[in-house]
Simulated assay, not measured.
Amino acid sequence: MNDLDLFSDSDPHGDRGYARGPDPRRGRRAGRQRQRRRRRSGSAAFLFAMAFLVAVVGTGGVLGVAWVDQRLHPPDYEGQGSGAVTVQIKDGDSGSTIAATLLSHEVVKSTRAFVSVYGKNPKAAGIQPGFYQMRKRMSSSSAMALLLDPKARAGNQIIIPEGLRAVQVAQQLSKKTGIPVREFQRVITRPTGLGLPPYAKGKIEGYLWPGQYNLNPNASAREILKSMVDRFNQFAQQSDLAGRAQRAKLQPGTVITMASLIQAESGRPDDMPKISRVIYNRLRHKPVPMFLKFDSTTLYGLNKYGIVASNEDIKSKNRYNTYNYGGLPPGAISNPGEKAIDAVIEPEEGDWLFFVATDPKNRITEYAADEQEFNRLRQKLNQYLAQNGGN
């Protein structure tokens, strides 16, 4: 038996079965079946693709229409709203900024709706900074009308003039807000958490920035005083107070102390650089420095007010008595403004050693370079006081 004989029993047809090959009719039938399956699969894929395309286009169309509708008709509340909420509009706020503020307080439903109303109202630019008593869930047009209504503004606008002492600031703030003076005084005594600069050395005097304020009707005494210190810090940063003081070979705290003296002693802004020069000339006098002998500092230390310190006043031992202590007082005696601070940095040239407010009513101050001229000016002031009263 050879190797070929091993396969003889496995194929009953022998060599003839292999010689015939596949049936051609069976192949044609299989081909037609494969074509029908491909056509059915292609049709199903086409139908699925069309269904998906319709779904996508349909959804996109709905979203597109919704997007256009939102652009043309942004979400907005209806009516006058209800409840109460205090909203602050700051100086320089744009329409979009105001809209964002109103949205954050739930006054309006969308910024776009309010901006649309804002842009169509020619009076919109007339909205004043301040605190407004608004309502929640107002229509944008109602919110705009309220912002343009002066009655909606909280009546807590106040102007704090330059040169007031901290206790005087407290009195004015109390009168405006109804908060008891003692609450302001408590903060003045312990001014923690107000953000005072390090060179203030924990004292608030000198760092309550004068100017116009729109007081939050819901704020506490501490929050109000902190807003004034914040304004000082803002000025100090913007004006580079520390850098200017360094170039003048002064500490920032020294600048504020000197500025407070200048503010308290000057009658007019034009006097400030001259009074600044008097301070420098007295403190740098040769062969020995001169005492300042300022009535304003002496009276401050005694918690008194007036133009001239009495003989009894100048004998006092308080550290602010510049008749008895050389150099500057230990801190500011008032809250100075920008011009007084500038005068410290840029004093006017001159050899004056004295100045006298010879006509306080008309804010006239005169200057002298020697003691003889000073005595003449002092006599002039005494005559004024004799005729007009006061000290």
Score class of each variant (00 low, 15 high):
residue 158 I to C: 09
residue 339 K to I: 04
residue 358 T to Y: 11
residue 255 V to F: 02
residue 327 G to Y: 14
residue 229 V to C: 04
residue 187 V to K: 00
residue 2 N to F: 14
residue 204 I to M: 02
residue 273 P to Q: 07
residue 72 L to F: 10
residue 26 R to K: 04
residue 365 T to K: 05
residue 329 P to S: 04
residue 212 Q to C: 13
residue 160 I to D: 05
residue 185 Q to R: 07
residue 201 K to D: 03
residue 314 I to D: 06
residue 17 G to L: 15
residue 25 R to Q: 14
residue 312 E to S: 04
residue 8 S to G: 14
residue 374 F to C: 10
residue 365 T to M: 10
residue 148 L to P: 04
residue 260 S to V: 06
residue 139 S to I: 11
residue 61 G to R: 01
residue 358 T to A: 09
residue 131 F to Q: 14
residue 152 A to E: 14
residue 223 E to Y: 05
residue 24 P to C: 13
residue 70 Q to I: 14
residue 121 N to E: 05
residue 173 L to D: 02
residue 141 S to D: 13
residue 331 G to R: 00
residue 225 L to E: 00
residue 242 A to Y: 09
residue 250 L to R: 12
residue 267 G to V: 10
residue 183 E to A: 06
residue 381 L to S: 11
residue 71 R to S: 15
residue 235 F to N: 01
residue 198 P to I: 15
residue 330 P to E: 10
residue 298 T to R: 09
residue 387 Q to F: 08
residue 289 P to H: 09
residue 190 R to Q: 11
residue 86 T to P: 06
residue 370 D to R: 01
residue 136 K to Y: 07
residue 12 P to E: 04
residue 265 E to D: 01
residue 47 L to W: 11
residue 390 G to A: 14
residue 304 K to Q: 15
residue 93 D to G: 08
residue 373 E to N: 07
residue 311 N to K: 03
residue 280 Y to A: 09
residue 276 S to H: 12
residue 102 L to M: 06
residue 234 Q to L: 10
residue 301 G to H: 00
residue 303 N to R: 13
residue 229 V to I: 07
residue 357 A to D: 02
residue 346 E to A: 09
residue 375 N to M: 14
residue 62 V to F: 09
residue 25 R to A: 13
residue 161 P to L: 13
residue 48 F to M: 07
residue 162 E to W: 01
residue 28 R to A: 14
residue 245 A to F: 13
residue 203 K to V: 01
residue 147 L to D: 12
residue 235 F to A: 07
residue 188 I to E: 01
residue 166 A to W: 01
residue 16 R to N: 13
residue 105 H to I: 05
residue 108 V to Y: 09
residue 69 D to E: 13
residue 223 E to Q: 06
residue 24 P to R: 14
residue 127 I to E: 06
residue 213 Y to R: 05
residue 86 T to R: 12
residue 278 V to D: 08
residue 13 H to L: 12
residue 5 D to P: 12
residue 191 P to Y: 03
residue 99 A to M: 06
residue 250 L to S: 05
residue 377 L to H: 04
residue 235 F to I: 11
residue 245 A to I: 10
residue 131 F to H: 15
residue 55 A to K: 00
residue 72 L to I: 09
residue 82 S to E: 07
residue 127 I to Y: 13
residue 296 S to A: 14
residue 335 N to K: 07
residue 248 A to G: 11
residue 18 Y to T: 15
residue 97 T to K: 08
residue 184 F to P: 08
residue 279 I to Y: 06
residue 277 R to Q: 06
residue 170 A to R: 03
residue 241 L to Q: 02
residue 95 G to P: 04
residue 305 Y to P: 01
residue 140 S to F: 11
residue 157 Q to V: 11
residue 108 V to W: 00
residue 365 T to W: 05
residue 135 R to V: 08
residue 257 T to N: 00
residue 314 I to R: 00
residue 121 N to T: 07
residue 232 F to E: 03
residue 238 Q to W: 08
residue 8 S to W: 07
residue 227 S to F: 05
residue 140 S to K: 10
residue 146 L to K: 10
residue 307 I to M: 10
residue 254 T to F: 00
residue 84 A to D: 05
residue 331 G to Q: 00
residue 288 V to F: 07
residue 176 K to F: 06
residue 95 G to H: 08
residue 9 D to R: 01
residue 65 V to P: 00
residue 321 N to S: 10
residue 249 K to A: 08
residue 170 A to Y: 06
residue 342 D to E: 02
residue 99 A to E: 04
residue 139 S to Q: 01
residue 120 K to W: 07
residue 24 P to T: 02
residue 131 F to D: 08
residue 197 P to K: 12
residue 328 L to E: 04
residue 351 D to H: 03
residue 315 K to A: 15
residue 275 I to C: 05
residue 145 A to K: 09
